[in-house]
Simulated scan of single mutants.
Amino acid sequence: MASLSNCLRQNGNRYLGFQMFIDFHTHYDRQSPDRINLQTFHVTTALQEADLPLICSLGLHPWFVDESWEDAWQNLGALASLDKVVAIGECGLDRHIDLPIEVQTVIFQKHLELAESIRKPLVIHCVRAFAELIALKKSSKSSVPWIIHGFHKKMEVFQQLLKHDFYFSFGTAILSDRSPVIQAIANVPDGRFLLETDDRQDISIEQIYDRAATLRQVSLETLQTQLLETYYQLTRLS
């Protein structure tokens, strides 16, 4: 993994035809020679550089924010510029939790400012707050990619987000024939999505890729090449 990441940074497009899998959002350490495993961490005051794998994403997840979040935020600011940190998040808005949406919005905006300042994409957790999220994006005039992780909503929500230049990371929801997101992944433009396993230990990224290739009616090899290029573009590897 370390050698591949370095190769991508050093050689850019030369490696875009290399066949491998990208798990864009996972909570588990699943390192493999044929995988980019973007492990995500909720930052606490205790998290240190030595605790981080060779490639990761860092943020304050709204589920786990407590009264000491400002101290944790200082630590996130100190770690975020590390080369091994390729994205900021997950962060976001969630109306299913007790933390007031106003507080969540303040913390989300701090993530956005950080992502803009260090030119890294924003990985977003959103539950029942897509209207607010779109409004924030419109008002911020942000230039970094905003990526909705674990997207599984209906086509109407997908179309609104696509219209406002969001990116998507699809996960295990695409494995179900009854999922409303099936139509979205079949129609999302190339370059606007990645794939993930999130917190599922019983599902492999290979299964997600196989299903996505079937739904998009492309070969596995074609999908691998496309998503490696998308990952390269979104994470600004150079």
Results as ranks from 00 to 15, higher is better:
Ser81Asn: 14
Phe64Thr: 04
Cys91Trp: 11
Gln48Arg: 08
Asp51Phe: 09
Glu49Phe: 05
Leu54Gly: 15
Asp51Lys: 03
Pro53Ile: 04
Gly92Thr: 05
Asp66Val: 08
Leu52Lys: 06
Asp98Trp: 10
Leu47Pro: 01
Glu67Val: 13
His61Asp: 12
Trp63Pro: 01
Ala80Asn: 00
Ala46Glu: 07
Pro62Val: 02
Glu70Gly: 02
Asn75Ile: 08
Leu47Arg: 06
Leu60Val: 02
Pro100Gln: 05
His61Cys: 08
Arg95Cys: 06
Asn75Trp: 08
Trp63Lys: 00
Ser68Trp: 00
Glu67Thr: 10
Ala72Lys: 06
Leu52Asp: 11
Thr45Pro: 08
Gln48Lys: 15
Ile97Asp: 10
Asp98Leu: 14
Lys84Cys: 15
Ala80Asp: 08
Leu76Trp: 13
Lys84Tyr: 08
Pro53Asp: 07
Ala46Leu: 04
Ala87Asn: 08
Asp51Glu: 07
Ser68Gly: 14
Thr44Met: 05
Gln104Ala: 05
Leu54Glu: 15
Ala50Ile: 07
Val103Gln: 13
Leu52Thr: 07
Leu60Arg: 12
Glu90Pro: 12
Glu70Trp: 00
Ala50Tyr: 07
Asp51His: 14
Leu76Gln: 09
Glu90His: 05
Glu67Gly: 15
Ser81Glu: 14
Asn75Asp: 00
Pro62Phe: 05
Glu90Tyr: 00
Leu76Ile: 06
Leu60Ala: 03
Thr44Pro: 09
Gly77Phe: 00
Ser68Cys: 04
Trp63Arg: 06
Glu70Met: 12
Glu67Arg: 09
Lys84Phe: 02
Asp98Val: 11
Val85Arg: 00
Val86Lys: 03
Ile88Met: 05
Ile88Leu: 10
Val65His: 02
Ala80Gln: 01
Arg95Asn: 13
Gly59Ile: 05
Asn75Leu: 10
